[in-house]
């Protein structure tokens, strides 16, 4: 049986993310163009299809590896794990779901936070992992992001958040919803100190995550093809009872509508982040 967050993902884009890393020497099929790619080549291309440019989902550790200087990531707040505040049970109790997600991803929550270096510059970095309960935001993610923002303010370093999330984690009810306010309010700290916050949106950035910290970056970048929005396509379709435009809520479309600053290919991300930070820090004491 598929879990609730897997149902949020359209089939053709269904993540390869269940595997934490690509075993080399195995053939992979691109979910978009159906071409097969050799594992080694896929890793070399940063998990971008060598034929059509489709960006495969990355898990948080792969993302960190791609974006930061080798071995520079020092994890913070790793020990925070969820409680079961509203005793939520669907087909399984919430603690059971968390346990399964931990086993599947090797993570303790749907976000990794810490210090990292990008081309030699120290930054605070948060990376969400869609493989962990759909990258959903509960109390732990809210707390980790908020602490990281405070850490940025304390250490005077820029903040980068890489989002991949279906939204708020309903298994924690109202407490999840309130994390939207908590994280958004905390971002005022960076404004006071002229500290840059770059938000990178990846497939998918929706709901409570997009309606809080993800859409509040000083600069907002997105990977090609990312689904970005508030309400999910299915909900919108049900509400308005008509078909949605083909590129609806895709990064390229969001760029046209003025919602994001740039669409950046995976291979260019690290250097682009670095260059933008050069500008945003150059004239600030």
């Amino acid at each position: 049986m598929t879990s609730w967050f897997e149902k949020l993902t359209p089939n053709f884009l269904h993540p390869e993310s269940k595997k934490v890393s690509i075993p080399e020497g195995v053939w992979h099929k691109c979910p978009n163009c159906k071409e097969t790619i050799y594992g080694k080549d896929l890793k070399k291309s940063l998990k971008v299809c060598t034929t059509c440019g489709f960006h495969f989902l990355l898990c948080a550790t792969e993302r960190i590896e791609q974006l930061t200087d080798a071995d520079s990531f020092k994890e913070l707040y790793a020990n925070l794990t969820p409680e079961d505040p509203i005793k939520f049970v669907d087909s399984k109790p919430y603690p059971e779901r968390v346990k399964m997600a931990k086993r599947k991803t090797g993570l303790t929550e749907a976000v990794l936070t810490g210090d990292a270096k990008i081309n030699g510059r120290l930054v605070s970095l948060a990376v969400l992992d869609f493989g962990f309960m759909g990258g959903s935001m509960g109390s732990v993610m809210g707390e980790k992001i908020t602490r990281l923002i405070e850490h940025s303010a304390d250490t005077n370093q820029p903040l980068i958040v890489v989002s991949a999330s279906g939204g708020a984690r309903m298994q924690e009810g109202i407490l999840s919803l309130m994390q939207m306010a908590k994280t958004s309010i905390a971002l005022n700290l960076l404004k006071d100190q002229h500290l840059a916050y770059i938000s990178l949106l990846t497939y998918p950035t929706m709901g409570g995550v997009s309606a809080s910290f993800a859409m509040l970056g000083d600069v907002i970048l997105a990977e090609p093809g990312s689904l970005i929005g508030f309400a999910g396509p299915r909900v919108i379709k049900q509400t308005i009872k008509q078909d949605l435009p083909k590129q609806f809520q895709r990064a390229e479309e969001q760029l046209e509508h003025g919602g994001i600053d740039r669409v950046v290919k995976r291979g260019d991300l690290k250097d682009e982040l670095s260059k933008i930070l050069d500008y945003l820090t150059a004239n600030i004491q």
């Binding site: 309606a211 508030f230 509400t239 435009p245 809520q249 003025g258």
Partner: peptide
């Protein structure tokens, strides 16, 4: 809830809510 519609998304529903949350905080 906030309206789930095409126009709402095109005009950045998520951003409009996020900014309210941040600014009400101060």
């Amino acid at each position: 809830g906030a309206y789930p519609g095409i126009g709402a998304e095109d005009r950045q529903q998520a951003e409009s809510i996020a900014v309210c949350l941040r600014e009400m905080g101060i």
